[in-house]
Write a protein that binds this DNA or RNA. Sequence first.
DNA 1: TTAAAGTTTCAATAATTACTGAAACTTTAG
DNA 2: CTAAAGTTTCAGTAATTATTGAAACTTTAA
Lengths: 181, 181
Amino acid sequence: MILSPKIENFVLHCGEMGSRWGFNRTIGQMVGLLVIHEQPLTANEIAESLKISRGNVSMGIKELQSWQLVKVTHIPGDRKEYYAPSGSIWDLANRVFEERRKREIDPTLSLLRDQILDGPNSAEEEYAQNQIQAIHDLLETVTKWSAELQRLSPEQLQTLMKLGSSVGKVIDLKDKLLKKS
Amino acid sequence: MILSPKIENFVLHCGEMGSRWGFNRTIGQMVGLLVIHEQPLTANEIAESLKISRGNVSMGIKELQSWQLVKVTHIPGDRKEYYAPSGSIWDLANRVFEERRKREIDPTLSLLRDQILDGPNSAEEEYAQNQIQAIHDLLETVTKWSAELQRLSPEQLQTLMKLGSSVGKVIDLKDKLLKKS
DNA sequence: TTAAAGTTTCAATAATTACTGAAACTTTAG
DNA sequence: CTAAAGTTTCAGTAATTATTGAAACTTTAA
């Protein structure tokens, strides 16, 4: 399981970016490795390729499963587990996006809801209350939008994405559209 | 600079979320504090409110400035610097979004571009090359879209966001729209 | 000038997070 | 059943990241 320079380069980069994408270096490397390899890999192969301990791989796989980014496969007559990405690049990106929304937005939304129900407890909390409401509204809109995007088929999403610079035009024509629908 | 329970709660929560939003706990608390307070605060007030050292505040402010999230103001006859958020909640969210795109996507896009120019170096790199291309295309689309969103006025954005569940309909009517534009 | 008010820097250290490897656990073929 | 193959757990330790606080630096009023 020796990696070619190009692939090693790619995997190491995924490691560096790992923490920015929401996991840690090792897990970033694992994702990179799984994505770039056509065949599923065993835990031992992963450990060997990345020069990390078997235990670390096990923890990493667990974490990746909590993100729903890997699937386990088996080869007939072989009891080892083989790991592979749980879908296309697009699927993976979608899952990361969704999982991050859950971790980065949901807890705050929940706190802010409670604080809004509580109401301002004094005159100087008026401004605070307004700001809390503003953050709440923003996060709620983002959440709704994100749910909407999840509902779309990959083809629709591609279409939407490719709309690119004509998004502005779409918006300008919104009223017309809504009448027709 | 003693905080009311509700505000303290909010600020502490921002601290907990800080690392998930791309900074650290202290900086998260600083953002929370600045956003929730109507009046700009001095570095000393921030240090006192959050019970952290003066030096830490200085570093935090520097970091927040690199994210373009704070602005400095002065009060006539007072040489202290007063810090406040650099805009509305919406502005701040936009900046965080943009900055994260720069940190989380741009470096990868740049690496992948180079790797694509390099071309596959062997037969077994064929698959790898395809995957690299797929990731590249996805990230490029996201980048373009994000740039497009930045170009829109806040009002247009609001409109787009509020479109919510009718996004699907918009897509279905895309062709019709593009003819008219 | 200069000294008081304010700010920044950074080496030392604290706090957190990640990793290893050996032991415990699980599964299955015989 | 049991032993071999495989997997997971977790205490100890390594690596990383954040924080303090004292010294250096900057600005300004007198």
